[in-house]
Every structure is written in structure tokens, then in C-alpha cells.
């Protein structure tokens, strides 16, 4: 079914995409601007990318963000997957509704509130804010996204595969690692990618929970922009867009592969 390209369709498509992507396209274009003036085109150049390499604080922030992203995504994936398994496989246990609500709450919770409440918690516990507090904060808000992704895969998985494994003598733990996990692996990978991207993007929660010496890339960029936009920032942002785009692509490929995987409904 291919819808016909009418004038109306073309115009609305163009306007829609322009609305969404024009600012990003401008940013990418001006990152290759020769001129120091952000809004005046002075010819093509990669000098701002070179300048980026000399910008110590910015590189340091990127490194911090990368480490927080990998760590928090990994923790969030483990916890989120466990929550999904509990929700889908353990039937109606006491507190199931409560757990469902609590797992999904961060999806809709305003980031300012999540950030503020975490800040209050860390202050109350007298924890030194820094790398680990940001990582923990990111785990707590990205875990639910992993749960959603993994849960949707688990519910479509043929339950009798797990029963067959147990019937053949596999303990519940062996069943999980030898049958369930390999079959939901694409969703788990997709969940990790999503959590990583969310962590990399986050400014609000990181601002609340970070401390000296743990400035993430979005925090650094935001801080510099307040002193004036330099083409260097455009270059940094372009690189970030590239990284996030790659992660999203990998995520969608992983979940597509998950859908194509046989074994969800074997037989007739």
C-alpha cells in the first residue's frame, strides 16, 4: 500500500521534517563554518573540530559522560531485565501492581522532580556528590525504559520454551541463562542502547546530582553556551548527534532482529 504523493502530503511532510530537523541541520552546517561568527557563513572548514581536540575541559567532560553512560546503562539493563522477568513470569504475586506502578513512574515523572528528590536524598545521606551519584541517578531513571523494552519481548515469547527446558531437567536459573536470556537478548541489547543514550543526553538530572570534578558533556556545553555560543560547541554537538544516531540505529536494528527471530510461536 503506497499512499499517493499529493501536493498536500508533500507540503505537510516538508513542513513537519523542517520543524523537527531544521535547527539540527543548522547546527551541523555551522559546525563546519570558517567564520567565528555563528550566524554568518564564512566558508567550509573543520577548524572547530581541530580546536575541540585542544579543549581539555570539554574532552574531559565527554570522557566522564561516556563512563557514566556505559556504567549506568549496564546496571539499568540488569535491574530492568530482572524487573521485566518478575512482572511477566511470576504471575500475580503480592505487590505486583505496586511494583508495576513503581517501575513505570519514572517514565512520566518530570526530570526536575527526579533530580531534586535524588539531590535531597544524597544530601540527607551525606554522600559526596560526583561521578557515582550521577551514575546512580541515571540507573534509577533509565531502568524503567529497559523494563518496557524487555517486557514487550518477554510477553510474546512462547512460554512453553521455558517449560520445555525445565521439563528436560534445567533448573529455573539454568533455564533463564540457557533459554530465556538468549531469546530476549536483542531486546536486552536494545534496552542497554536506550539507557546509554538517555544517560548521554541527560542535563537536568545530572545537574542536580553532580558535584565538583564530575561535569558531564551536556553540563559543560550548557555552561559554555551561557558565556556565548562558539562554533566549537556546534562541532561538539554534531559529534554527539552522530553518537546518539548510531546508538538509536543499533537499537532499532537490534529490536528488528528480535522481531524476526523465530521461536515466538512455533508450530501451526
Amino acid at each position: 500500500m503506497t499512499p499517493r504523493l499529493t501536493a498536500f502530503n508533500v507540503v505537510s511532510l516538508t513542513l513537519g521534517f523542517a520543524f523537527l530537523y531544521l535547527p539540527i541541520v543548522l547546527l551541523v552546517v555551522f559546525s563546519f563554518n570558517e567564520s567565528k561568527l555563528v550566524t554568518v557563513w564564512g566558508g567550509f572548514s573543520t577548524r572547530w573540530y581541530a580546536a575541540l581536540l585542544g579543549n581539555g575541559p570539554l574532552l574531559e567532560a565527554a570522557w566522564v559522560s561516556l563512563r557514566i553512560g556505559v556504567l549506568s546503562a549496564t546496571f539499568a539493563t540488569v535491574l530492568g531485565t530482572l524487573a521485566a522477568v518478575a512482572l511477566v513470569r511470576f504471575g500475580r504475586f503480592a505487590g505486583r501492581t505496586l511494583l508495576t506502578g513503581m517501575v513505570y513512574a519514572p517514565l512520566v515523572m518530570p526530570e526536575v522532580i527526579t533530580g531534586l528528590s535524588l539531590l535531597l536524598l544524597f544530601v540527607a545521606l551525606d554522600v559526596d556528590r560526583g561521578f557515582w551519584t550521577v551514575t546512580l541517578a541515571h540507573v534509577s531513571f533509565s531502568m524503567c525504559f529497559v523494563t518496557v523494552v524487555v517486557q514487550s519481548r518477554l510477553v510474546t515469547m512462547d512460554r512453553s520454551l521455558e517449560e520445555a527446558a525445565m521439563d528436560l531437567g534445567a533448573t529455573p536459573l539454568a533455564t533463564f541463562f540457557q533459554v530465556t536470556l538468549p531469546l530476549i537478548a536483542p531486546a536486552v541489547a536494545a534496552g542497554w542502547m536506550l539507557a546509554f543514550t538517555l544517560s548521554l543526553d541527560d542535563l537536568v538530572i545530572a545537574s542536580f546530582t553532580s558535584g565538583p570534578g564530575a561535569t558531564t558533556l551536556p553540563m559543560r556545553i550548557y555552561g559554555q553556551v551561557r558565556l556565548g555560543v562558539s562554533p566549537e560547541i556546534n562541532a561538539a554537538c554534531t559529534i554527539m548527534i552522530g553518537v546518539v544516531t548510531l546508538a538509536i540505529l543499533a537499537f532499532s536494528i537490534a529490536s528488528k532482529r528480535g522481531l524476526a527471530e523465530p521461536g515466538r510461536a512455533e508450530g501451526a
Binding site: S160, M166, L168, A170, P172, T175, A268
Partner: peptide, 20 residues
């Protein structure tokens, strides 16, 4: 006695072969 310790085996209607 849990399923994995029972000396019976089942052939499932869907066959439930491990796809991986």
C-alpha cells in the same frame, strides 16, 4: 517435586524447540 526433577518428559504441542 519441581518439574525439572521429575522423571517424565513432555512433547509439547508447539514442539517448543529452542530456536537458538
Amino acid at each position: 517435586v519441581p518439574a525439572h526433577r521429575r522423571p517424565v518428559n513432555m512433547m509439547f504441542q508447539s514442539y517448543a524447540l529452542f530456536p537458538h
